[in-house]
Amino acid sequence: MAIIEFERVSFTYRGLKRPAIKDVDLRIEKGEYVVITGPTGCGKSTLLRCINGLIPHFYEGDFKGNVYVDGLNTREHQVFELATRAGLVFQDPESQIFCLTVESELAFGPENLGLPPDEIGRRIAESAELTEVSGILDRLTYELSGGEKQRVAIAAVLALKPSILVLDEPTSNIDPKGTLRILEVVRRLNQVYGTTVVIVEHKLELVSLHADRMVLMKEGEIVEDGSPRKVLTSETALNMGIGIPKVVQLYLRLKKEHRLSDKVPLSPREMKEVVLSLRGRGEK
């Protein structure tokens, strides 16, 4: 069974007329790295909130359909249960850090679960290592850079030991160096530790290579769902107004005049191979 399953899910926030998401069907398998993208207001954040139960339990509105996370129906389980299966990391680093020191922040989740202190200590050490924050455990949270804060937020969520990591535009407010570091942490969690990753991102040139799958949303509906290479070159994507990586755009232009393999380049290195293979074949 898929680790996350959306069955004809629709949700309209209380007080609004238009549904934020409409008839969403989605299956995510264990260990997948899924990127969700689309223009502002397309329902991405709403979709993520359904995964850990904030919808329907925290955000009020009209919820239709069913969401199953790790076998649990989110209608029948509280957020605090679902949060140990799917950890949600938000966009704003400031609003998801509550404690004064990094160490106490990582302890917060396990403390809420009533775990004994030595187990808490173990989890702190583990999550700190996974997110490269072991060196700043004693630091005060308000002194941290945006990138450090986000990695602390990820560690704090990992301390609950979820098998799914859900991230809502985690690098939005972060500078390039910090962004790379965060995305590298996420990639490693997925590729080395097998964590299922569901991430909303606009910086497609940075995540396409790490992702197994890309889902495009528009006005509350899923309009494309497939491998990044397929989705980024689809008609829908091209007409939609998402940040298609420059190398993909180049590839598409070249494809109009040359015979190219179907392997769409997702990085400059892959593009180099495309060019060299063209050259090798003597194509002009």
Partner: peptide
């Protein structure tokens, strides 16, 4: 200085040995 070069610049560096000019900015 802690910044990322635009993707096309990265591409230019990858292909610099093949006569690709370094100062490419647009598609």
């Amino acid at each position: 200085h802690g910044l990322l070069a635009p993707q096309l610049t990265e591409l230019a560096y990858e292909l610099s040995d093949y006569g690709f000019p370094r100062d490419i900015l647009t598609l």
